[in-house]
């Protein structure tokens, strides 16, 4: 049985959605720019520990999440710093600060590694959340492919927006020309210091929500069972509960 076949789902799942999930699983299992395939799959596995981590649940209630001692429930495949980064992104992202991201760099995780980790964590989480929405268990993770990360960093990435370096609004040029057109929104730039992280989530977003062209279409048929307003109601309610200002 192939991954994401949804054969046992009581609710039929679109073929295109199954395919983008499969494509992302393949991408996940290969070495990235800053993490090996084994590490990338381990980050994905840690996402699943985070949602049931008792320490994260307690820390979420704490007034100061940066002065709350304890131990994460973890899979034992990653170092403490990496585990904490994955768990914080999944369970308490609204309280992530520039100081904390800077502290990662001081303790050995350069911003590019953080950004790739962020891309993996949130994309895997979005796929797991889709399954959970349908009452299904998460898809088994893929076996990792051997190889080392290539440490690619686009030369045009700069600091100045948000907590991490990213391509300038008009910086989708050269090898990154496929990312967007003449200019774009900050949320699309956010992971662009690791261009494949952007490509990964764009691909999954096109299946789960809309592709770039579809996002600029506010009325009419998007080829979905729900119209744009219904999509935005779901999007808005999820964002509000997550306390996301953006």
């Amino acid at each position: 049985m192939s991954a994401f076949s949804y054969e046992h789902s009581p609710y039929p799942v679109r073929q295109d959605l199954q395919q983008v999930y499969r494509d992302y699983w393949s991408m996940l299992s290969h070495p990235g720019n800053w993490w090996s395939g084994t590490e990338r799959v381990a980050i994905a596995n840690e996402v699943r520990q985070a949602t049931s981590c008792e320490y994260c649940a307690q820390r979420k209630q704490a007034l100061s999440p940066y002065n709350f001692a304890g131990q994460h429930t973890h899979a034992g495949e990653l170092d403490e710093l990496t585990v904490d980064a994955v768990h914080r992104i999944i369970t308490d992202q609204a309280r992530i600060t520039q100081d904390w991201v800077d502290s990662l760099e001081q303790t050995g995780m350069r911003p590019e590694k953080y950004v790739e980790l962020l891309g993996i964590a949130v994309t895997v989480f979005s796929i797991d959340e889709f399954n959970r929405g349908l009452g299904l268990t998460p898809e088994p993770l893929p076996p990792a492919h051997p190889g080392e990360p290539n440490h690619y960093r686009p030369a045009q990435a700069i600091r100045g927006t948000g907590f991490v370096p990213m391509l300038p609004t008009q910086g989708a040029t050269g090898q990154e020309a496929d990312l967007w057109g003449d200019h774009t929104a900050n949320v699309l730039r956010a992971l662009s210091v690791v261009p494949d992280a952007v490509r990964g989530w764009f691909m999954v977003a096109a299946g789960q929500y809309l592709d770039m062209a579809g996002m600029m279409q506010f009325s009419g048929d998007h080829g979905r069972a729900i119209n744009r307003m219904q999509m935005e109601l779901v999007a808005g309610r999820v964002s509000a509960i997550n306390e996301c200002f953006y």
Binding site: P12, F130, F163, V187, R189, A190, V204, V238, S239, Y246
Partner: peptide
């Protein structure tokens, strides 16, 4: 239901990208 779950999954990702990268 399937399309609503897909959009919900998508925005569980987007809010975390926005906040964890600190974008204004």
């Amino acid at each position: 239901l399937v399309d609503a779950a897909a959009v919900a999954g998508n925005f569980q990702r987007m809010v975390r990208i926005a906040d964890a990268a600190g974008i204004p």
